[in-house]
């Protein structure tokens, strides 16, 4: 079983629309939405949730005011300024390090496990899907990403599917690192803008840092063909395979508004034709020896 993770560095370059389009084209695959912070894939996949679980991760300090003598040791030790002058823990500032809980001489601090989201195993018209929802303002998105990818792989293995298509988050931090680890390959969706180029360069560096084979495609190519070419040249220099170009096409927005993939909406649009070519290249790319098998 292979896993393709779609990332971008910069947000809003079209990761999710593209992944949904691939879901229309790929045979025997499972889906995984690893953008747990602002998950959108379900808006097109319309999943029927079959199993629902709480995501418990990390702890949070709670001061029991009946036992607290206000000695101030916790405030002194807390590096997050999470404890107020009247000894109440700000749950948003609390890092969950447990230092106050460990040292409180009165044992007045509890350290319960936190529920910081939910995750789901679902069925969609394109196959099984693992997805999640991180609680608003919660931490540990990287852990939830690792978990949901693991569940996605299990779904694929259970039905002996060949491929897991994973929608990754933007950026280069914790959740992105968690979505790249151990992937067969990653497709970077770039856009031909100064920001798109800057962000793509950083995410290429990230993939190299974690030794995940990277491929790139450029969305809205015609907005700035010179920039598009510069991005492709950079990619080749870094051994990142260029998979193709997608023109700016309102079909992506129109399909999204109707909750459809671009192929379901209009499979003869310019966007659809371009994505089909990219998909064919990806299938070949995933077969080449540089891409590793999942175990």
């Amino acid at each position: 079983m292979k896993e393709l993770v779609v990332i971008s560095g910069k947000g809003g370059t079209g990761k999710t629309s593209l992944l949904a389009a691939f879901a229309s084209l790929a045979n025997r695959k499972a889906l995984c939405d690893a953008d747990v912070d602002a998950a959108d894939l379900h808006l097109i996949m319309d999943p029927r949730i079959k199993e629902r679980y709480d995501f418990e991760s990390g702890h949070e300090a709670v001061i029991n005011s009946d036992m607290c003598t206000q000695c101030g040791l916790c405030r002194e030790l807390c590096r997050w300024n999470a404890i107020s002058e009247d000894f109440i823990v700000d749950p948003i500032a609390c890092e969950g390090c447990g230092v106050c809980y460990y040292f409180c001489p009165e044992k007045a601090i509890d350290f319960p496990l936190k529920t910081c989201g939910e995750w789901y195993l679902s069925e969609t018209r394109f196959g099984p899907m693992a997805h999640a929802r991180l609680g608003i303002a919660e931490e540990n998105s990287g852990k939830l990403v690792s978990l949901i990818r693991k569940e996605g792989k299990k779904l694929a293995e259970k039905e002996s599917l060949d491929l897991l298509l994973t929608d990754g988050p933007p950026g280069i931090g914790c959740p992105v690192i968690a979505s790249l680890g151990g992937a067969t390959a990653t497709l970077i969706v770039a856009e031909p803008t100064v920001s798109g180029r800057h962000d793509m360069e950083r995410v290429v560096e990230l993939a190299a840092f974690f030794k995940v084979p990277a491929m790139v495609c450029i969305n809205k190519y015609d907005l700035n063909p010179d920039m598009g070419q510069a991005i492709e040249a950079f990619a080749r220099e870094r051994n990142v395979t260029v998979m193709g170009r997608i023109p700016f096409d309102p079909v992506f927005t129109k399909a999204m508004v109707q909750g459809k993939t671009i192929f379901e909406f209009d499979d003869r649009s310019e966007g659809s034709k371009a994505v089909k070519v990219i998909w064919e290249n990806l299938v070949k790319g995933l077969e080449t020896s540089t891409c590793r098998e999942q175990s």
Partner: peptide, 9 residues
Amino acid sequence: PPGTSCPVI
């Protein structure tokens, strides 16, 4: 940054 988790907060 985009999102709704710790970096945004």
